[in-house]
Amino acid sequence: MGETIKNRYEFVVLFDVENGNPNGDPDAGNMPRIDPESGLGLVTDVCLKRKIRNYVETVKEDAPGYQIYIKEDVPLNRSDRKACESLGIEETDEKKVTEALKKLKRSDPDADVKLRDYMCQNFYDIRTFGAVMTTFVKASLNCGQVRGPVQLGFARSIDPVISQEVTITRVAITTEKDAENKSTEMGRKSIVPYGLYRVEGYVSANLARRVTGFSEEDLELLWEAIINMFELDHSAARGKMSVRELIVFKHSKELGDCPAYKLFDAVEVKKKEDVEYPRKYNDYIVDIHYDTIPESVEVKRMI
């Protein structure tokens, strides 16, 4: 592991979608999420985190220290059990493990911290986003909640988006019985013709130093993952999605130099005057008001 990060960061990501559905709303039949009052499109934090995890998993292929805890198709407890094994517990029976852990706790009061550190060292997403590891708690060990240094908000579109319903047909019929009566099946997909979304994030150097050991290399990987999060994630539903801007604010200190909202307010994204219906990235102007940003804060446009 490299050096733990020493600076607080804030970042703004701008990404857009063309003829696709960036994040379906289970409450609305998988139509794109839209705030009903403002008409602005939404993409949840967990959706973006999933993309980042997937990218890291694909690129690192489970290299030591870069495993992913919340995977598709692997039970969580199995990863927990790996932590137990590292402490010399190799029981497979649930009850025996619990007893072994209790015994361990009596003989080694720092056992839970060791387990926590083991998890942080091995799993990139725990180092980054944290995890709730209450699966240990039943065994009187409290690895509890690891708060990761990286915090993401919801992404919101700059302007109201419309969701367009596209009806499609397919010639292959699923069941024999239907095939007797009809020759095509109708399907539906919802798309956003165009939307530019903005999401804001935070990196706390203190949590990295005290808890998870999130390092400079991890941070580089995080930026890489954010820039490429849609590149390995193409699908029929998502259309064309791309990250257009990643603006990183690097504070000179661990605690930061100025309030986050001032930095975010300095990034202004707006439609060009003469554009009525934005349909491409060039319909927007991105302005960074450097005069409102303290000199000690370093601004980097990563793309």
Binding site: Y202, S204, L207, L255, A260
Partner: peptide, 9 residues
Amino acid sequence: RGECFHMPY
């Protein structure tokens, strides 16, 4: 100064 240990939520 807007300093914080981690961003409040």
